[in-house]
Design a protein around this nucleic acid. Structure first.
Lengths: 188, 188
DNA sequence: GAAATATGTCAACAACACTGACATAAAACG
DNA sequence: CGTTTTATGTCAGTGTTGTTGACATATTTC
């Protein structure tokens, strides 16, 4: 990210009103954008690994939950992921055909298909967990905790610091600069 | 979400190894899943509103950043969103044609197109910000702060509480139940 | 005047979500 | 025991959002 300094043109069409664009600051407004940036980088790590296997984010989610909760049923997985069974089946099929996941018929209810990772699946899931855990662990240990200027917001600061620390280190300055740009235009 | 109790079948193909599936707990492993659930619900609110306008998540992101940072250029927006200009143009075109965003030629550099929200755009962006701010504010004020059993992890607890509180209230119990299921299988 | 930059656009394609319809096996119920 | 419900699988079509590659235009920079 390489965002230059603030600039202006004719001036916006907007006028002060209900929301009044770029104003109406609320405590934790920054968290909305930080969540976007943090999540963007959070899924970026796995994405790079998955691409080498020809898998995508959808495959990751399935593999992750099956790895962490062995014996998950299709219905449970659908409930967690909140997607349709058609969407799930498309990626699950790939994972089963390529021997990352196996299905076993349920013992108590033989209609159910319980899902388990194979060794291959466990290995890949482990690689993916590893990079994400690394980012999270680093974020928790990050000393970049610069308390906000205002008063304590009861958790607001630490949530903000956590999300900021989840962002790729090289990008943090740019994100800080961007958000400062908004803060300035509001203070005016 | 309605996840039943733990169940087992034949037993997984996996064996103890490097990662050893469902084991290898790390401080903040929960945060990986909480981030998934929190983000899922976080974007769920706006999605419902946007659907009524025939817009999607991509439209939301563009509208949000243009609203918050009036005068943003195309290049800056591309840098923030990390998508190609072709992807951006598709949704930006919709927003401009339907009068949510206007472009103004830059004054210092006439090649640039500075982006601004119209009143319509500001209004919609305000509605979207509102629901997200509501969720964040509620999460920050949430007294659901049940300290973890272990020792303090320096920010780990509050980040965990924040993300949990970002989850749709009716779903939190299910998420807690799910994650407890993993904790149990690990303790064994 | 040539080269670099900021933006726009056409075309094709891939991932991942959706809807709707239909099929099968097993469990549950009366 | 037969009907109904449940858990899962599958076919077909569609929409959103991302990608690559190629090319065009206006403006700035050197």
């Amino acid at each position: 990210m390489t965002l230059p300094a603030t600039q202006t043109a004719g001036g916006a069409t907007s006028e002060p009103g209900h929301h009044s664009g770029a104003a109406g600051q609320s405590p934790g407004d920054d968290l909305i954008e930080l969540l976007f940036f943090a999540y963007r980088d959070f899924v970026g790590d796995p994405d790079r690994i998955l691409a080498q296997y020809g898998f995508g984010r959808a495959h990751h989610r399935v593999l992750h939950f099956v790895d962490r909760y062995p014996g998950l049923t299709i219905a449970e997985l659908l409930d967690i992921l909140r997607i349709t069974k058609q969407s799930l089946n498309r990626v699950l099929k790939d994972l089963i055909e390529q021997d990352y996941i196996v299905q076993k018929t349920g013992t108590s209810d033989r209609r159910q298909r319980l899902l388990f990772c194979t060794d291959r699946g466990t290995a890949l899931a482990g690689d993916l967990i590893r990079v994400q855990t690394h980012r999270v662990t680093r974020a928790l240990a990050d000393p970049a905790a610069v308390p906000a200027e205002g008063g304590l917001d009861g958790g607001a600061i630490s949530a903000q610091n956590f999300l900021l620390a989840m962002i790729e280190p090289e990008e943090r300055a740019a994100v800080r600069r961007l958000m400062a740009r908004r803060a300035r235009s509001v203070a005016r």
